[in-house]
Design a binder for these strands. Structure first.
Length: 280
DNA sequence: CACCAGGCAGTGC
DNA sequence: GCACTGCATGGT
């Protein structure tokens, strides 16, 4: 009798687990990778190749949407794609804010906030300023080949980088900013591990002391490299959608996970075609 | 040719 | 504090 009850309970949980994992929104590679968070990926005939990590620590993922086991079976990539966060609960909460927010959530429900290496994210978003995603990817690829041997350039390799080398790779006016940032990390002014723990405004302040890191780059580095989900980067697209959809409001209406809301809004604004012009 | 891109520093007020 | 401008580069 006891064993029968135990068996029934086990069966019940098994069915529930299956059911919940079935209804849970699946990670979308297409909506997550090209959404301006990371810059080292490619896609060919439905197969995605992703690189992450600095120097010798580089890892390469090859995966297709119809078989995500290379991600789910590998703790590194499971963490990279933030599989443990309950995005369905966050979207349900966000969707009560306004019809536009609900639309942004349902537009690309498989978006995740990536968990990238903090140095790679910080450096990548220094490159990103006043630049477009396609060109950012090209510059970073050339930096990886020139300094990293395939992995992302180490802090050390960029501390001693020559500015004319960086300009040749296409960095333009950002070349000294990259060296400044590497120097601040190398000298310990920026302690990347600490940025994950300390007060968020203190963390922003530390980053913004570097010439070349402003509020937007700091927020992106913290959100995508330190998993600070309360950071809310305001780029040109976010300014547009906030002005139109949430006039007079700021990030506080989205609560402590505003960074996640930001990513749904950013992706919606940039790809839906509804916010291209200054009109509306 | 102008204008833009996941901005920022410098200057002027 | 806020508004304005120059900045490297490649794409429309």
């Amino acid at each position: 009798m006891i064993t029968l009850i135990v068996f029934s309970v086990k069966l019940f949980y098994t069915l529930c687990m299956r059911n919940s994992s079935f209804t849970e929104t699946q990670l979308s590679l297409r909506d997550t990778l090209p959404s301006g968070q990371c810059f080292r990926f490619s896609e060919c005939d439905g197969t995605w190749t992703v690189k992450a990590g600095v120097g010798e620590g580089v890892r390469t993922l090859v995966v297709r949407q119809n078989d995500l086991s290379p991600i789910t079976d590998d703790p590194f990539w499971a963490a990279f794609f933030d599989l443990d966060t309950d995005y369905d609960a966050l979207k349900a909460s966000f969707s009560t804010i306004s019809p536009l927010m609900a639309e942004a959530c349902s537009y690309a429900p498989g978006i995740r906030i990536l968990n990238q290496d903090p140095w790679e994210a910080l450096c990548s978003f220094v490159v990103s300023q006043n630049n477009n995603i396609k060109r950012i990817m090209g510059i970073i690829e050339r930096m990886c080949n020139f300094y990293g041997g395939g992995g992302f350039p180490t802090v050390r390799s960029l501390v001693d980088a020559r500015e004319d080398d960086l300009r040749r790779l296409g960095l333009g006016f950002r070349a000294p900013y990259i060296v400044n940032t590497a120097r601040a990390v190398y000298d310990g002014l920026i302690q990347l591990d600490e940025l994950k723990k300390i007060d968020i405004d203190v963390a922003r302040g530390i980053l913004m002391k570097v010439k070349g890191i402003g509020p937007k780059v700091a927020d992106c580095a913290l959100l995508f490299g330190c998993h600070r989900l309360d950071c809310f980067p305001m780029d040109v697209w976010m300014k547009r959608i906030m002005a139109i959809g949430f006039p007079g409001q700021d990030k506080s209406i989205f609560g402590p996970y505003a960074g996640v809301a930001q990513q749904y809004l950013f992706h919606y604004a940039r790809t839906s075609g509804r916010f291209d012009g200054k009109s509306e």
